[in-house]
Design a protein around this nucleic acid. Structure first.
Length: 481
RNA sequence: GUCCCCAUCGUCUAGUCUGGCCUAGGACACCACCCUUUCAAGGUGGCGACACGGGUUCGAAUCCCGUUGGGGACACCA
């Protein structure tokens, strides 16, 4: 039991799930599943001012969409419930008291204004902006008096002097920090809520977390956490700090540079398996040549040893490619099921499954998202209302109108309106009249679709049907000079 | 500014720990050609990188030092 791997993903409910968070969650999930351990979801809601209603639901929903099921956490419950830090305040309070009692922490009455002024001063003198320990010099009597007077105070951890703290990290190896650069971090805020540092350490211990897998932005506060474990007399977990996800400008991926919410990608039509596959490969690789990984494959292949050290740019281009790949792996009937609700949404009705299936088959090689069937080939569902100007210039020749007018009765005369018959008829016509096939085909496409690009002409005409094609050809001949 | 991390094609990366098999491999993107009535998809080929400088060594992308560059952290936010 005690050697069971236990990891956690610990987001704070300040909004949506960030794609960087998704990757962190994924690696935790993979590591847990790979080692037969437990994956815990813990909500770090210790900042009341940043709490966003509905955020927890959004995060849980995104995790579920991605297929990352957790063993313990909100809704799921578990032996270490509650999994909301706001409901665990007593634990932090007690931990802070222990630290104060042992001299590892102390109350501080400094106001925000004083702190600000102090930092400004120290910065001016080119000193670090650490707390100046003003309140460490307070006498016990004075502390009691001010507490009794109801003065608000925080609890700060006391960083030891002249020592080095070594963080041993699975990804980065040994990292050493001098305690002289560490700040007397606030552990308990004046509202009685803990800061991240206290709550995180206390909960990771209480929840028996064995491996802390989180973003690199936490590396520089890890020595404080290591110190806290030592103060409490607890065994620290193993740490693994993941390389950051970067924007195009190589700074930490943020809203400024791209869509960062998992839900954004979902609404844009990305598949969860594409996003998961993509994000898995940002900072990790299997060590051999392979691009496609289902979640189950990742579980069997993942290891923290193969996680890289340098940040990775979140490159939409590759994500899009992956999505198109996954789309092509879907069967036409699966794609049909995805298309139907989109059609309903747009109020497109009156098309049978067989007909829609045909459209899907013609479009699947040409799209990255199912919704693009509507965006790039809306003419399947309604007559074109305009003709692409560039294509008109390029493909609609002086003789086109005449040619189509003469071709129309030939096509109408055919007993069957299928691609093969159509092709034969058009080619025969071109031979007989001594015109190039392309002089027929391009104007025909323009007439039927209003565009210059798309599926094969004969197949598309067959799908459109005799009436629609005739109607569209007549209209084009009328409209285009 | 201080501390910490990082450094292979434009991007994701293999190779680095355990120096030689690397005239550095793959994927995305890009370019060309093939296929083709168009656009895709597919096929073939191409462009394209070990940041720089010192060392160690018979030999360095790989080890060491430095420089430069980039990033992160320095809140009663996580």
């Amino acid at each position: 039991m005690s050697d069971e791997v236990r990891v956690r993903f610990a987001p704070s409910p300040t909004g949506y799930l960030h794609v960087g968070g998704l990757r962190t969650a994924l690696y935790n999930y993979l590591f847990a599943r790979r080692s037969g351990g437990k994956f815990v979801l813990r909500i770090e809601d210790t900042d009341r001012s940043r709490y966003v209603p509905g955020a927890v639901e959004m995060i849980v929903e995104s995790l579920r969409w991605a297929g990352l099921d957790y063993d313990e956490g909100p809704e799921a419950g578990g032996p270490h419930a509650p999994y909301f830090q706001s409901e665990r305040l007593a634990h932090y309070r007690e931990a802070a008291d222990r630290l104060v009692a042992s001299g590892r922490a102390y109350p501080c009455f400094c106001t925000a204004e004083r702190l600000l002024a102090m930092r400004k001063d120290r910065q001016k003198d080119q000193q670090s902006t650490k707390y100046d320990r003003f309140c460490l010099r307070l006498s016990p009597q004075e502390v009691e008096a001010r507490k009794a007077a109801g003065e608000p105070f925080v609890i700060r951890m006391r960083i030891p002097d002249e020592r080095a703290v070594v963080v041993s990290d699975i990804v980065r190896g040994r990292v050493e920090f001098g305690t002289d650069v560490l700040d007397d971090q606030i552990l308990l805020k004046s509202d009685g809520y803990p800061t991240y540092h206290l709550a995180n350490v206390v909960d990771d211990h209480l929840m028996e977390i064995t491996h802390v897998i989180r973003g690199e932005e936490w590396l520089s506060s890890t020595p404080k956490h290591v110190l806290l474990y030592r103060y409490f007399g607890w065994d620290p977990p193993r740490f693994a700090h993941l390389p950051l996800l970067l924007g195009a400008d190589r700074s930490k991926l943020s809203k400024r540079q791209a869509d960062v919410a998992v839900s954004d990608y979902r609404t844009q039509g990305y598949y969860p398996e594409a996003l998961v596959n993509f994000v898995a490969l940002l900072g990790w690789n299997p060590g051999y040549d392979r691009d496609f990984f289902a979640l189950a494959d990742l579980v069997s292949e993942f290891s923290l040893e193969r996680v890289g050290k340098s940040g990775a740019i979140f490159d939409l281009e590759k994500l899009r490619w992956l999505n198109a790949e996954y789309l092509r792996r879907r069967s036409p009937s699966e794609l049909l099921d995805e298309l139907k609700p989109l059609l309903a949404e747009k109020g497109v009705a009156g098309f049978g499954d067989a007909h829609l299936l045909r459209i899907v088959e013609l479009m699947r090689e040409r799209i990255t998202f199912v919704r693009e069937i509507l965006e790039k080939a809306g003419w399947f569902f309604a007559d074109p209302t305009e003709y692409d100007a560039e294509t008109v210039t390029k493909r609609w020749r002086p003789g086109s109108r005449d040619l189509l007018l003469r071709l129309l009765p030939v096509v109408e005369a055919e007993s069957s309106f299928d691609a093969a018959t159509l092709e034969t008829a058009v080619k025969a016509f071109s031979d007989r009249e001594g015109v190039k096939v392309s002089d027929l085909v391009h104007p025909l496409r323009l007439a039927c679709t209003g565009m210059g690009a798309g599926p094969g002409l004969y197949a598309l005409m067959e799908t459109l049907g005799r009436e629609a094609c005739e109607r569209r050809i007549r209209k084009a001949v009328e409209t285009l000079k």
